[in-house]
């Protein structure tokens, strides 16, 4: 084999490809479908009555290997009810710049409140904007219905009396 034939052979491959249809997909115009079990941006779900499924138990935060979930729980009151039960997530934040989309949070959730969806266009101009708040993650739905709940009858506590000064 001479160097000349080797080179010609190589160039022929290049030239052949010049006349083929390109495989490039025009991304913003054309979005390739993802597989059904693709793990993208998280969603927080609601019950049918509009209450949040998340109770703020922090198990997702415990499972998260990237330590990107922050949950601060608080107590539901009869006036402000967000979830069934006593507890709800007052703050629920996912730092998307840290998330590795492993889906452990979804596995850990005892109420199927969090799932990973199919969105993957998450680029932002600043890192701060990548911290997703509960409002951003919560699926759009009917505004949580303020389920009226009777207050606990504090029968174990008599009215406080002011003692003498």
């Amino acid at each position: 084999m001479s160097p000349v034939t080797d080179n010609l052979k190589g160039f022929s491959v290049t030239f052949r490809h010049l006349f083929r249809k390109p495989v490039t997909q025009q991304f913003p115009e054309y979005k390739r479908p993802v597989y059904p079990r693709f793990r993208g941006r998280h969603r927080l779900h609601r019950h049918e009555n509009g209450l949040e499924k998340c109770v703020g138990c922090s198990l997702c935060a415990a499972a998260c290997p990237a330590d990107c979930i922050r949950v601060v729980a608080a107590e539901n009151t009869p006036e402000e009810r967000y979830s069934p039960g006593e507890r709800y997530a007052r703050i629920y934040e996912i730092n998307m710049s840290r998330c590795i989309f492993c889906g452990y949070c979804e596995l850990a959730c005892p109420f199927d409140a969090i799932t990973l969806g199919h969105d993957y266009e998450l680029a932002e101009m600043s890192r701060d904007a990548l911290v997703y708040t509960k409002q951003m993650l919560l699926e759009p739905g009917p505004e949580a219905r303020r389920t009226p709940v009777a207050p606990v009858d504090p029968y174990d506590i008599p009215a406080q009396e002011d003692g003498p000064a």
Binding site: G56, C57, S58, A61, A62, A73, A74, E75, R87
Partner: peptide
């Protein structure tokens, strides 16, 4: 301490 934290937090 109601709902203030979990042991891993």
């Amino acid at each position: 301490y109601r709902f203030r934290g979990r042991p891993w937090e």
